[in-house]
Write a protein that binds this DNA or RNA. Structure first.
Length: 480
RNA sequence: GGCGCGUUCGUCUAGAGGCCUAGGACAUCUCCCUUUCAAGGAGAAGAUCAGGGGUUCGAAUCCCCUACGCGCUACCA
């Protein structure tokens, strides 16, 4: 068996592609590729009750979007296919049977009702809920009778009463559990499908996974997995448990308290490279302390030694800041292209090309574009008389200012230049006894409909003289 | 409850015994630039390194205890 580096992510197709999946994919892929290895996607769809048809496709699409495409996986292929667990049932059945033969597994015929009753009693006695191993002591004859009667059963693993199970975690060091605190877990469900603990071990072994890099929540069940490897006589992979992404209240990141769907981030216009950069900053840092870097840097520099042990709070504000930085790094042409999926089909592309440079510094998400630049396209936004009036002014002074500004603009020789326009406006302001800033603001509101806008002159240039005058006229009419 | 994993500015983190009167980033505030908002630049404020005991000449860094947080404790993953 070659000691090739092979890492995998094993998401369950139970809903929208999760940000935690991307988080794990990032480090798994970076480590694998940083060590000349392979990155695998395996779909863990053994829970038929939570299965979601679209999910597998969306997981793949999201990974592609982020540039975290697997080397092997469903729809991609590979030497260890199939990569979907429901297509690998035979393997799990065989493993379960082998475990029984080895004396470390047994069939359990207890009904859900009995288990519930058992747990109720235990709860009443304030004991932890655990299986009482009743079926462990079933005789061969009893088992065969039950089987002959067609009684449904699950396969459980028998955990020894004595001893401790220890494993080394690449991030946290040695971790050990006393075996007696472990429950005899179900490995094969009555529908014949395996539970995570069985499937993950069987598949990781079959797929020759060298490093199991997964979330912290799996630490508690790792001893189970280690035992299974040992019982089967298989080589135990290396383990690394990444910290769990958290909500602001420090609970495990959840849909209720955060946007966990990768689709959402894509729709909002977060750039995949910003997403990657941000996720890498969660629980990991560059040796040189840089905070802006790309995926290839992560591949080159990633080590488990630099992974934090405490769970980072997922901070959308910081992601937004990083996203803005990445947007500003884009050339105007690149930004124009990247904006395409985020705008209405009918949007005037000629105007858009001119708008991109003036909005770039103000854009934090691609999805904001139209909201921020709507006044350049189609109808001007409705003017509000109150907005047109300067703080210390009256509607009358605003009206006067607009009329004089209109006359000035109309008389300004074409083509307009920034210098001439500005000089003229300032002269006009002092003539009117207004602060220059107030005059500019009145015009800004008349032209853009808002007191917050891209640079006024550049905006007017994009709109053109005719349109600017039209808008000023509208504002005048409003105040008259 | 049991077991496990954690605990450095509001948040992400640097820090692997002396370089720490704890550094950076985001957020906040101030100033500069400036026709608004941004962006950019310069500053400020912000952490008794969870608390308490050790070890040591010396501890954020090593050990122990406590507290708190989180995770697991399903025929979910």
């Amino acid at each position: 068996m070659a000691d090739k580096v092979r890492l995998r992510i094993a998401p369950s197709p139970t809903g929208d592609p999760h940000v935690g999946t991307a988080y794990m994919a990032l480090f798994n892929r970076a480590y694998a590729h940083g060590h000349g290895g392979s990155f695998i996607l395996r779909i863990e769809d053994t829970d038929q009750t939570r299965y979601n048809e679209a999910s597998q496709r969306e997981i793949l699409a999201s990974l592609d979007w982020l540039g975290l495409t697997p080397d092997e996986g469903p729809g991609i292929g590979g030497d260890y296919a199939p990569y979907v667990q429901t297509q690998r049932r035979e393997l799990y059945t065989q493993a379960a049977n082998r475990l029984i033969e080895l004396g470390h597994g047994y069939r359990c015929f207890c009904t859900k009702e009995r288990l519930e009753e058992l747990h109720r009693e235990q709860a009443a006695r304030r004991e932890p809920p655990r299986y009482d191993r009743r079926c462990w002591s079933l005789t061969q004859v009893q088992v065969e009778e039950n089987l002959a009667q067609g009684m449904p059963y699950v396969v459980r693993m028998h955990i020894p009463e004595e001893g401790t199970t220890t494993f080394n975690d690449l991030i946290r060091g040695e971790i050990s559990f006393e075996n007696r605190v472990l429950n005899d877990p179900i490995l094969l469900k009555s529908d014949g499908l395996p539970v995570y603990h069985l499937a993950v071990v069987v598949d990781d072994h079959a797929m020759e996974v060298s490093h199991v890099v997964r979330a912290e929540e799996w630490i508690s069940s790792t001893p189970l997995h280690v035992m299974l490897y040992q019982y089967f006589g298989w080589e135990v992979p290396k383990f690394a448990h990444m910290p769990l992404l958290r909500n602001a209240d420090r609970s495990k990141i959840s849909k209720r308290k955060n946007n966990t769907s990768l689709k959402w981030y894509r729709e909002q216009g977060f750039l995949p490279e910003a997403m990657i950069n941000f996720l890498a900053l969660m629980g990991w840092s560059m040796p040189d302390g840089r905070e802006i870097f790309d995926y290839s840097d992560i591949e080159r520099e990633f080590t488990f030694e630099r992974v934090t042990t405490s769970g980072p709070v997922f901070d959308l504000v910081k992601l937004t800041n990083i996203n803005g930085k990445y947007i500003r790094q884009l050339s105007d042409e690149e930004l124009y292209e990247r904006l395409q999926p985020y705008i209405s089909p009918g949007l005037d592309r000629d105007i858009m090309r001119k708008v991109v440079p003036v909005i770039k510094d103000r854009l934090t998400r691609l999805g904001e574009f139209e909201e921020l630049t709507g006044f350049f396209f189609g109808q001007p936004p409705p003017h509000e008389a109150s907005l047109l009036v300067p703080k210390k002014g009256t509607p009358e002074t605003a009206l006067e200012a607009l009329k004089r500004t209109r006359a000035f603009l109309d008389s300004l020789p074409e083509p307009w230049t920034h210098e001439e326009w500005e000089a003229g406006m300032r002269a006009l302001a002092s003539e009117l006894g207004m602060k220059a800033g107030d005059l500019f603001m009145v015009l800004r509101v008349a032209v853009t409909g808002s007191n917050v806008s891209p640079p006024l002159y550049e905006s007017m240039e994009i709109l053109g003289k005719e349109e600017v005058l039209k808008r000023v006229d509208r504002a005048i009419a409003l105040l008259s």
